[in-house]
Each structure stands twice: as structure tokens, then as C-alpha cells.
Design a protein around this nucleic acid. Structure first.
Length: 145
DNA sequence: GCCAACGTTGGC
DNA sequence: GCCAACGTTGGC
């Protein structure tokens, strides 16, 4: 299993909207960046990710899973662009902010800190566990995810 | 709203 | 294939 981070501006596509889609999930469309696309191509079904609010909020608010492998992005005719589908799993009991992440030396290597412009990023397992812990997730729930 | 960092485009 | 110009992203 691999871990990821999906960034969205909440006034365009928020965690609330994502949750409203339920199990059906939602195409993560609109990505026009090769690195981000390549990350999506590398995803497997069931991979987990953080849902992060950029621009406003600046915090990881929930956990999603990859519910469909990379496929053509329906919002463009350009064949280069692909995306996965994701579905909301759970809220983080308490959002983990950019400030929190920057203040934690264990997260100093996070892509979010070092390449803040990348909208779909890989997260290491150690980072995943650390951010979940900071978000108030207890070990039991974490294991079930 | 500003601006630094980054990615892409296109002329040469 | 280099690199200047431009556009966009996203933290602040």
C-alpha cells in the first residue's frame, strides 16, 4: 500500500463535497501537471491519501482511498491527461495544518513542505503515521484504515 | 493581493 | 536543445 496527498482549493472542491459523493467517489480531474499525473498513474486500488485544503484552510482534513485506477480525464479531449477516482473514508478527528507540519521536524522531508505546488504528492509511511497521529487518530482506527 | 517558485511554451 | 518569457500555483 502506498500513501498520497491530494490538494484541493475548498471553494472549488471541498472535503464536504467529496464526502457527499460517498462510496461512489469522484474523478480527481483537472490535473494538468505531469508529475501529479504520474503520481496518479502509480496509484493502486485501495491506496490511501490525505485530502488537503490549499489556499484556504491549509490543512489536511480527511482520508480518502483510491477507488479507480488512472483513466482518461473526462474534462479534456487531450489524451495526455489522466486521473484516478477517490472516495472519502473518514475525517481526521482534528485537522492537521501546514503550520503543524512545518513545526514537526519528523515531517521536514514532506513534499508538502518542500514542493508546495505539487497538487498530487507521495507521502511516506512514516509521514502517514505521524500526520494521522497528529490528527488525533488512535492506533486502532489507523490500523483498520 | 503579493510574489516566489515552478512548469510550460516557443523562438532561435 | 537552450533559455527567456510567460502563466499558474499556493503560502503568506
Amino acid at each position: 500500500m502506498h500513501y498520497w496527498l491530494f490538494k484541493s482549493e475548498p471553494f472549488k472542491w471541498s472535503w464536504e463535497m467529496q464526502k457527499a459523493k460517498g462510496k461512489a467517489g469522484q474523478e480527481w480531474d483537472g490535473v494538468r501537471n505531469y508529475q501529479a499525473r504520474n503520481n496518479m498513474r502509480a496509484m493502486a486500488l485501495g491506496d490511501r491519501g490525505f485530502f488537503y485544503h490549499s489556499n484556504e484552510g491549509l490543512e489536511a482534513v480527511g482520508i480518502v482511498e483510491v477507488s479507480a485506477l488512472a483513466h482518461h480525464d473526462s474534462t479534456t479531449d487531450d489524451e495526455r491527461w489522466e486521473c484516478v477516482d477517490i472516495r472519502a473514508l473518514v475525517d481526521l478527528p482534528k485537522p492537521v495544518t501546514m503550520v503543524d507540519i512545518k513545526a514537526n521536524p519528523r515531517l521536514s522531508e514532506m513534499v508538502l513542505v518542500n514542493n508546495s505546488r505539487l497538487s498530487v504528492q507521495p507521502v511516506s509511511e512514516a509521514e502517514w503515521i505521524e500526520v494521522c497521529r497528529m490528527g488525533g487518530m488512535d492506533g486502532k482506527t489507523l490500523k483498520k484504515l
